[in-house]
Write a protein that binds this DNA or RNA. Structure first.
Lengths: 329, 329
DNA sequence: CTGAAAGCGCTTACAG
DNA sequence: CTGAAAGCGCTTACAG
């Protein structure tokens, strides 16, 4: 494998010159530029990025830490992050925290180990303290850690309002919201705020049930519904679910227990991820998160932070959501 | 950010000694070991992996190149690859080729640029030639490029046989197989071989239709069925689909056109990925690929190749598949 | 327009 | 058991 030295020797110039040609310095004469490019081609030379990283003190790698890349929502989010990274000369190092605090912490240390130039954090178990010792770029998805760490999220509050208003507009009088853990200080909690406020404003009685686990599987949700939700359903005519898999599990539960949807029970989900888009029966009514926009913003903003681009100082952003009406409401 | 120099100064030893402590050399006295560890703790020192990589000539990073990480099958495969990598001290660099030849090629160059120690290749557009100039570890998923490049795959041939036999056992007489492009020299083509052979052995008439695009979306498959498949369906009573999304699209098509499944038409898919496991109606009959095993084997074998582990020389492997009976046959 | 030399932060023979 | 020095393959002031 040829190094810059070999190219320099072959072209009869110094390694400085080779480096300059590689990096498109304007001061190089046409003739030497050509010589060097020829040698590069002949030797099939590719610069060593490890060496480059060491001297430039940048790895051009972004760490992406999420709970689980096989989760429908995150797998799409990652795709758009990666595409955006690629378009900007960065690569991504993928890390699944699997909701394990230790792993989350150890992944954050990638910053101190210079493995990555910045981190996109989509996993939220460790507390604010752990971020204190870090002065390098971090951006979070759907979580506001503190003033210093920017976040990207969709408009969860409005999402909650839209979902709840929709149920009320459809005639629901007694609403239930099934939410992820509200202890985690996730921005997703604002969905619950929007839900509550809308119920209060419309004099609709409501109830909120939290699930704690983050295993977002159908089986988990179905048994959660059987054990923790079913006994309340009799008094309920509309449910706002915090994600679409949960909404589907509830739909199936209702089907299995002769509760007709949407006649007796209206169900609305959240995400509009791939699963929901593929599913044809039912078409789940849901709040669509703009996954592509979220992924792109996460990536472009972490890059701005890394490159300390002063022209673009607004790193935290909230993007709009949209109601998608299906057949479950 | 402290470097090894700072630790050495703080502990009153040489950087060589600090390095030895970091790397668990046995020859260090207990007292200096303690001094060094104390300094590391006090200074919150983390070794620079870029520098380490440069001197050790290994990045401890594995490149994973796939068509699209948001695809249900690949998102799960990646998860298991990443977990296995993590357990063995490696990280993964995720690359979506998006079925773009240029990208595939440029990603392979990560090897020459020392960004990664090895590559797991799950994207198969570029031809054998492109791999000729590479003498570094590559392992492929579901594709046999040449003798020198090991592969991991599931037993596609048996999968094809199992699926076809199942349809025949259920009484089908006129079979159709809808396959991905057979030109790509993918091991998945063996499903089609298994299909053909089983039809011939059982004197069942058959037909094969290929789709060319790799956009594995419901919409693509549905319109493909409308345009290219529907006119043949009248003469068919059983279809073996090369993936579950396609099988679902066909199911929905039949539903929409009053072709009752499984009475008039039996449908079997392939993969048994997350989507299929979540979907409750219908339960698609399918061939389950052992995604976890595949991911683990891909990762452990590329690591063996990277570390040139002579104790474990069998790098190509085929793993067994399983018939999952649902309600579509 | 070009080059010699120092430096990035580690590891690793070599020497004692 | 420990250290001085060379080296990994680049980039970047500095000098001409």
């Amino acid at each position: 494998m040829p190094s810059i030295k070999d190219v320099a020797k072959h072209a009869g110039v110094s390694i400085t010159t080779v480096s300059r040609v590689m990096n498109n310095f304007p001061s190089i004469s046409e003739s030497t530029r050509k010589k060097v490019f020829d040698s590069i081609r002949v030797l099939d030379y590719h610069p060593d990025y490890i060496a480059r990283s060491l001297s430039k003190k940048q790895s051009l790698i972004i760490g992406v830490i999420i709970p689980d890349c096989s989760h429908v929502f995150f797998s799409e989010l990652i795709k758009h992050i990666e595409m955006t990274a690629q378009n900007n000369g960065y690569k991504i190092l993928l890390c699944n925290s699997l909701d394990d605090k230790e792993k989350e912490l150890s992944y954050i240390n990638m910053l101190k180990e210079k493995r990555v130039d910045g981190i996109i954090m989509g996993s939220h178990l460790i507390n604010t303290e752990a971020y204190k010792s870090i002065d390098k770029p971090v951006i979070t998805f759907d979580r506001c850690i503190d003033d210093k760490i920017p976040y990207i999220g969709s408009d969860n509050f409005t999402g909650g309002v839209l979902a709840t208003k929709h149920l009320i507009d459809k005639g629901c009088k007694r609403l239930l919201h099934i939410s992820g853990s509200l202890k985690l200080a996730s921005l997703a909690n604002k969905r619950s705020d929007g839900f509550k406020l809308t119920c209060l404003e419309n004099n609709v009685s409501y109830q909120i049930i939290e699930y704690q686990h983050a295993h977002l599987t159908f089986e988990y949700f179905y048994s959660f519904i059987e054990q923790e939700v079913s006994r309340f359903l009799e008094d309920i005519d509309g449910v706002f679910c915090s994600n679409d898999i949960l909404a589907y599990a509830l739909y199936v539960y209702c089907l299995n227990h002769n509760i007709s949807v949407p006649d007796k029970m209206k169900i609305i989900g959240y995400d509009y991820s791939q699963f929901t888009r593929i599913l044809q029966n039912p078409k789940i009514t849901t709040i669509a998160q703009p996954i592509q926009v979220l992924g792109e913003l996460l990536c472009t903003n972490i890059i701005h932070l890394i490159e300390d681009d002063p022209a673009t100082k607004i790193y935290s952003q909230i993007v709009a959501v949209e109601l998608i009406e299906g057949t479950t409401t």
